[in-house]
Design a protein around this nucleic acid. Sequence first.
RNA 1: UGGGGAUUGGUGUAACGGUAGCACGACUGACUCUGGAUCAGUUAGUCCAGGUUCGAAUCCUGGAUCCCCAGCCA
Length: 619
Amino acid sequence: MNTRDDRENSAKAETPRRDFIREIIDEHNRTGRFGQRVHTRFPPEPNGYLHIGHAKSICLNYGLAEEYGGKFNLRMDDTNPEKEETEYVNSIIEDVRWLGAGWVGMREDDPRAGVLWASNYFDQMYEFAIEAIKKGRAYVCDLTAEEVSRTRGTLTTPGQESPYRNRSVEENLELFERMRRGEVPDGTKTLRAKIDMAHPNLNMRDPVMYRIVHATHHNTGDRWCIYPMYDWAHGFEDSLEGITHSICTLEFENHRPLYDWFIEIINEGRTDDGSGPWGKKIHHPQQIEFARLNLTYTVMSKRRLLQLVKEGYVRGWDDPRMPTISGMRRRGFTPEAIREFCRRIGVSKVESTVDVALLEHCVREHLNKICPRVMGVLRPLKLIIDNYPPGQVEWMEAVNNPEDPAAGTRKVPFARELYIEQDDFREVPPPKYWRLHPGNEVRLRYAYFVKCTGCDKDPQTGEITAVHATYDPATRGGDAPDGRKVKTTLHWVSAQHALPVEVRLYDHLFTKPDPNDVSDDAIRAAESGGSAEVQAVEAAAAGKDWKSNLNPKSLETLEAAYVEPSVADAVPGARYQFERLGYFCVDPDSGGPGASGRRLVFNRTVTLKDEWAKIAKKQ
RNA sequence: UGGGGAUUGGUGUAACGGUAGCACGACUGACUCUGGAUCAGUUAGUCCAGGUUCGAAUCCUGGAUCCCCAGCCA
């Protein structure tokens, strides 16, 4: 029931948590660093599908803009023509929209409206590169990739300067122009920043700014054959858009000095009023790094997710077992649940792994409030009410959602032959088993008390084929006039009215909280002796990697489940609670209502908490 | 043995020199026409060693451990 507590909780849920990023922004607002302006962005590279880790970033960035009355941009970071695809662009836009983040210029009628592209700034970046050359801050280098790598030095020793480092401005300009015109083959020249080959931060050892790639870009076609590197491009993308807080993950912390350096060298000879020789200063955003999200029992890297898709371990990017936004959507998660999850995990600089149980908790919490209840039987067992008149059908009134009186009621058909869950009958009940067993009386939800009289078995296999019971007509609706109680209530469906459906049960994709943990294998390897390193090597040699921890039971398909007839016209995406079992969502594989030969397919989103399962597990 | 980060219950996250709190999990119990939901409660933590202070998770010194960086990827 909705109570005052619920309202307080939901009010609490909308309260943003405090975190170090909000503190930095508050400080900027106190000092007036950005004139009280907050402008964030989400800048994905369109080379994969978005996952729950991206959701954290989206919620953070969009949430910040919302809270501070600022703006939020969605920008495709498409600086590498060889990796990026339109399929990914489309999925990213759909996912950000579904999550509920609204970017500047977003429109209902055109998914791409307002979406920004790094590639739109290629001209400006090229101008900046020329400026850097003219300022003596960049040079064209003829070293091959291998040579650059070799002369970079190591973590503890300085690199060597390129022999092309001191070319004249004129020569650099000329060569860069030839690179741009396509006169130079891939890999033979780069434009490099002239910084310091002895810098302790490797990113500052004359990093490459432009490489030559004769490839067709999904957005700019064949207009360019030189493409900016991330480090050169990213800061300008943010600068040009007036981003105030460039929020990114921890691994870019080492890049911040370079990000700042590039903007500063462009600002050399520029002034606030534009009177400098190079004109007006460009905007300098503040980069802030936070820890990316890790979740137990799954993997999050694009490379690995791609591998799962390509190698057929899952059915696609939107497989309901995937931690992708599209997978979670298909599974039945709600944007509200994901947003609440992102709020609860907070933001910090500590690398951490969040228990997937928290995500599941957030999903249950929301689904409990919004899902209509329905009865469905996953593993059917025939229950025959021997004293119920054959051919009689009663339509029992059932509550649609006890959490929401406004959801109303519906009628569910009851008859002599029903299906109940196989788990709900035991010929020999274990301790604390309250469900149906010979001699025991239970309630059938919204119907009658029934008392078990026995069961039929296959004489060959001993398998239970049907359960018999008698009902008490005085308990119609589910209450006994004499005040007697039963210990439990079972869900059921009328055999003649039951809708046959397919149900897909999902479990964690991996069997271990940390899929990288191949320690069992290492232990086995240790039996042959050897140090930890030797064990690791042996485990690897035995082909044991993260994929060996894939859960073979992550998908279980039930072909012969039944649900009550009221859901016959459910549309793909519709969510229900199957009472006592969990939350289920209609899969797109079902086809639309009224489609010929339609057979509903349900995905199990998440189970209900199951006290009995815990007891049974202990026994 | 270079540089950059980080370290609070099982997990995640607060506390900004003044009672170590919240959430998830786990465990009790109450209630219940979902063994659901709800409610009440229990459990369990400041990486280590010194120092400053009336008082330290917080400040100082030293140490330990973990993560990131040697792509013409982002």
